[in-house]
Structures are given as structure tokens and as C-alpha cells.
Nucleic acid binder design. Structure first.
Lengths: 350, 350
DNA sequence: TAGTTAGCTGAAAACGATTTACATGTTAAT
DNA sequence: ATTAACATGTAAATCGTTTTCAGCTAACTA
């Protein structure tokens, strides 16, 4: 218990730029230049200083530097749920890109609470982060909608969600096109009664998927039956509940399109429990293509999202902004892919 | 492109403690006190200053404060893979605990690379973080093993892994006991040929589980057959590969104990593909109890790890250290639970 | 009334780097 | 030999806080 304060003084933080300067018999400024603009200092002093730095194991204090340069070297990632494999996959790619550009990721799991989104967004206001990666759909800043957005918010990119503000740069899959593709495939298999289990109604990406669902049905001249639309909340349990409701219907659907894989897994669980055959009785389609979609039984047909690509695109667009370069705002779409597996098939002929 | 520098100057960063002080006609010191020790300032000035702070939307610059206080308010989480649901689950709990204590989590995904572990550990040396949550088993610092560890490393807790250094505080499930429980259960079901698919041999927790496996067999006087131990790498694919090898054996196992659920899922996939019945022909046991274990078919019997509890315990022990309090080093075990589902059953009677 | 105390407040010195402006030393050109 | 140009180095200001120390006022005690 001789205490960490002591410890840190002694073994870690004691050596500063001034100490190095003294030991190398140069000024602190020279040491600083050795580290950040070595081309400005003579070979001889460069080596001399570098050697001392090595010997002493000197690490420049980032806080001191940040204060002066007004750059923290951190990027704030604001995420509703890090436990969600889609988010985790994207984050992983982001983290890689950030680290190789010398940035660190600050992780903020908000549990969907606006309050916490705001809190984390404030970290950039307070200098702890230089930019934001936002995985939710709400603007975490108070903005004056009469003024151009660019002047009001820090560098930011909206990842894998949609905001209704066209002035923010957004990276995601084209949800309406993707959902439409999925439903078209089901229609192609002869399905006419296709149910949709959506996400929460306040989540734009869910509404976009719903739009794609409508579009596909409309183009195929299939009547839209509102009994076939159920609102889930992206959890397995909600998939189970919604499926229950659907099975109670007088005219059951022959296919169920779930707006994420979790709910699809729930749906399959219930269907199997009730003795339904998948896909012979009812086809099940997911969305996301999480890792496990492939391993449930039957393997889940779903829409693949390119998580790694989404992540790298996000971080690149953010880094570009952080470099002070202009990035054209608006949605940037990445390609999705329909993964046809065993959970979908032709509509029953009865 | 009129640039963020401009932007930030104008709309965000311009108001500092001095501005508030000037406006409120007090000294910066008083403003600081209003924020951090309001009991030291009179009601009247308190209100006056608070009002100005509100009006101006002033947020203290954390970097400036950090420089002075030598506390960054950050905790470094060093994780081999954030995509792993076990890690993600723990992190989520940690993040909550950290945030309510006023700390932010810096996320470092190392992809298992020592170099990156070191890099992230260095962030505390450079003042960017005050403590470390380590999800791997290697010490990311050079330490002199002749000296007590306490003086050489910053506040740190080892999460869900094992380090062979008893001086570091560690939080996890008792892997040997857990594995032993799992294998005992299989033995109780009449299995005698029980295979083990381990993790990488350089991962302590995997070796601990192997030890538990040995212990259980030994106590039941079952001969240990080295053909039945396969080294996987915690991926679904390695589960598939190992299962393949096991099926090629002249005397096949009647149960397969996988050291994580991913590999168990792979094993089940292969078994089903080859027409084996689970658990009638072969029982499959996992470890971790990830979210999806419940939803594969048949539902996976596995060892449940209390992720949330592990997370909160980790963060609490770290916070305790950060407060300067002594924390007794060594392993702290959290209770596991055997979840018996459908993938295991009595040994075939042949 | 004088002296003490308690309660507030302010001035100024940190914290550890970067960076500007300037000084020195060296070389090359006239 | 003088000067200009350049290479190299230094001193000092700066970033935005916190915190120590001292000072002031008002209230209380003797």
C-alpha cells in the first residue's frame, strides 16, 4: 500500500522532457524537435538525444502535448451496445485504422440513452477527444438548424445508422435497397404472404428496411397487409413474441423477414418448438449476417453487411476530417450481399 | 472546408475558465472551486458563477485539468478481440462502472499481438490513462522480478485470464474447477471416452481448463488417452477440424468437451453434417455460455461465466486501486454455473 | 476595543509539452 | 575582411486548469 502515487513518481513519470534536455545538454525545444520534427536538428544532436531518450525510457507526456497542441489524439466512439456483434465488428476495424493513424478510441456504450450520448459527445467539447464516431441516430449536440451544420459540430461520422440530417457524413448499407432485395428474393420463391418483424419504430435504419419491404411488395403488386408487420426490438425474445402473434393469425405468413438476425433466431426457435418446418412451412430471413447466422439450424438466409469495410470507411472519413480536409456529407453506401442459406425456400404449394 | 480549426475556435473551445471568471467578476480560482469544491465558496458567488457557466455553456477543459492533477480520467482496456462476445459482455459492465465513477474507457484491441499490448500499456506511461484492465495473459511491462511488483506497474487488473504472477490482481472464473465440473457431469452421464478440444497452448486459462479435465478423469479413474486431446484455437473452424480428427479415431469419443462455445458450435456443425446424432451418438459440451449457445440446435450444454459480475468486479477493484487503496493481489474467483441443455446426454449403451 | 478566528477570495505558481522569436555559430560569397 | 545566408540552438510564452498561500472581511471572544 506504499501507494501508487509514490510508485508513479518514482518509476514512471519522473523523467520529463527537461530531464532529457539536461542529460543531453540541449534545450527542451531540441528534444521536442527530435521527437516531432527530426529534420530540423543536426544528425549529431539527433543521435545524442535519441540515445538518452532510449536509455531513460522517456515517453513524452501526452497530456502536456495535448494542452499545447489542442489535439487529444482520441476519437470518441458512441455506441448503443458494444455487445451487439455488428457494432463490435465495425468497432474492431475502426480501432485498427485509428491506431495506425496514431489515434486511440474512447469507448462509450450508451445503452440507448440520449443522456449518455450527450455525455460522451461532451468529451470532445472538453478536449478529451477530437472527433466522433456515432452509432446512433440522434444528434448529440444542440444545433441551430438555420445555420450550416458544419460550423456547429466537431468532426463526426455516423456509422451504420441514419440521421435525417443530410449534412452529416454517414456510412452504411443502403437499407431500403437491401431489404427490397431480401423481399424480392422471397417473392421470387413464390411467397405472397410475407411478414416483417421490424426494429423499434424510432430507429431510422429499421424504417428504411420497412420502406424496402413496402417497395418490393408494391412492385410485385402484392397487397400490403398490416397484420403482417410486427414491431420487435432487435432481441431474440421480441422475435419469439412477434412470431407467436404471427402464428395466431387466421392467414399465416409463409415467410418472415426479420430486420436483424437475433430476432430471426428467436423466430426460428419458436417455429421449431411449435413443430413448424423451416423452410417447408415457413421461410425465415434475417438481416446482418452475424457470425452465428451460419451456424444455427437451419442456417439462416440473411443480408450480409460488410462490417470491416464499414469500419474502415468510417474511420477514414473521420481521419480525413481530422486532417482538416473537406469530406462531402451525406450517405455513403457500402455493398450488401444476400446470403441464401437453408432457412428460406419455395412457398408451400397449398 | 472553411475548416474545423476555425469552427472549433468559434463555437466550441473559445470559452475558458478565465472568460467565466472575467464575466462573473471573480478569479479563475473561484470558478474552479465552484466546479470542484463548491462547499468552499459562498452561496452568493456560487450562484452568480453557476449562472454564467450555464449561460455560456462552459465545459472545463479536461486536458488542462489533467495536466495539473496528473489524472487523465481514463482507463485503458487491453483486449485481444472485442468481437468475442465474452470480452464484449465484460467490457459492457466495465464501461458502466467506469462511467459512473467519472472514468472513460480507452479501448485497445490487440489482435493478440504483444507489440500492441505494449503500445496500449504505454498510454498510461504517457499520462493518457490512469489504470489498466488487461484481458490477456502477458505482462505488458518490463518488470524486475527481484523487486515487488507493486512498485513497478500502474493500477491494473487482469480480467478473465490468468497471469502466472501472483502479485497482480486477477478476476475470473475458477477454470480448473469449472472444467472439472463439466467433465464430472459427463462422467456422471456414463461417458468414459471424453475428448477435449483446448484453446491455444500458450493461453493459461485454456491450460487450467485442461487441468480440470485431467483432474476429473483421474478422480474417476478413467485412463487419459492423449489421442482425445486436440488443440484448437477458439474458432468455429478449429472446432470443425478437431472434430474431424476425433471422428477418424478407431475408438471415437462419446463426448467432446470444447473449451469454448465457438468450437462447440463448429463441432456440432460437423457432427450434424456427418449424420451423427447429438447427444445420442456423441455429447457436446461448451464453455462460456455465450448468448447464442442457447439458440443453436440442439441447445448447447455449457459452463456459464458471469460476464456482468466479472466486469463489475474488475472495474471495482481497479477503481479501488485508483483511489489509492490497497487491493489484495491474486486470483479472485467468481461463481460459474453448469448449464445443462440438449447437446449432452447419457453415453450410448453399445 | 482589540484580538482572534472562520469564511471567502485572489494572485501566482505549477503541470509538461510545443512553438515562436531570437541568438549564436558556421560557412560561403563578395 | 565583411556580410549574408544558413544551420543549429535557446529562452520564454503558451495551452487551461488546480492548488497553495496569503489577504481580506466580518463575526466572534475576551
Amino acid at each position: 500500500m506504499i501507494s501508487f502515487i509514490l510508485v508513479r513518481e518514482l518509476s514512471v513519470a519522473i523523467v520529463g522532457i527537461k530531464d532529457i534536455a539536461t542529460l543531453a545538454k540541449v534545450s527542451p525545444a531540441t528534444v521536442s524537435r527530435v521527437l516531432s520534427s527530426p529534420e530540423l536538428v543536426s544528425k549529431k544532436t539527433l543521435n545524442k538525444v535519441k540515445k538518452i531518450i532510449d536509455e531513460m525510457g522517456y515517453r513524452p507526456n501526452r497530456i502536456g502535448a495535448s494542452l499545447r497542441t489542442r489535439k487529444s489524439g482520441n476519437i470518441m466512439a458512441i455506441i448503443p451496445d458494444i455487445t451487439n456483434p455488428v457494432n463490435a465488428g465495425i468497432i474492431r476495424a475502426i480501432e485498427q485504422g485509428a491506431q495506425s493513424a496514431g489515434y486511440s478510441i474512447l469507448l462509450g456504450d450508451t445503452q440507448g440513452l440520449l443522456e449518455r450520448e450527450r455525455h460522451y459527445a461532451d468529451l470532445v467539447t472538453s478536449g478529451q477527444a477530437d472527433g466522433i464516431l456515432l452509432f446512433c441516430s440522434r444528434m448529440p449536440f444542440k444545433v441551430d438548424s438555420n445555420m450550416p451544420l458544419a460550423g456547429q459540430i466537431p468532426p463526426m461520422v455516423n456509422a451504420n445508422e441514419s440521421m435525417d440530417n443530410d449534412e452529416v457524413v454517414q456510412v452504411a448499407v443502403d437499407n431500403v435497397a437491401a431489404a427490397k432485395t431480401a423481399v424480392n428474393y422471397l417473392i421470387g420463391e413464390g411467397h405472397k404472404r410475407i411478414a416483417a418483424i421490424t426494429g423499434p419504430s424510432d430507429i431510422p435504419s429499421s424504417n428504411e428496411r420497412l420502406q424496402g419491404y413496402f417497395d418490393a411488395l408494391q412492385e410485385a403488386s402484392i397487397d400490403i397487409d398490416s397484420d403482417l408487420q410486427m414491431a420487435g426490438d432487435y432481441t431474440v425474445d421480441s422475435g419469439i413474441n412477434c412470431a407467436e402473434q404471427l402464428l395466431l393469425l387466421r392467414k399465416r405468413p409463409t415467410a418472415i423477414f426479420c430486420f436483424n438476425d437475433e430476432m430471426a433466431i428467436g423466430v426460428m426457435k419458436l417455429l421449431k418448438k411449435q413443430g413448424f418446418l423451416i423452410p417447408e412451412d415457413i421461410s425465415v430471413m434475417g438481416f446482418d449476417d452475424i457470425h452465428y447466422a451460419e451456424y444455427v439450424t437451419p442456417a439462416l438466409t440473411t443480408v450480409h453487411q460488410p462490417l470491416h469495410e464499414i469500419g474502415t470507411t468510417c474511420i477514414n472519413l473521420l481521419l480525413e476530417q481530422l486532417r482538416g480536409n473537406y469530406v462531402v456529407p451525406g450517405k455513403q453506401f457500402l455493398p450488401f450481399e444476400l446470403k441464401v442459406r437453408a432457412s428460406t425456400g419455395p412457398a408451400p404449394t397449398v
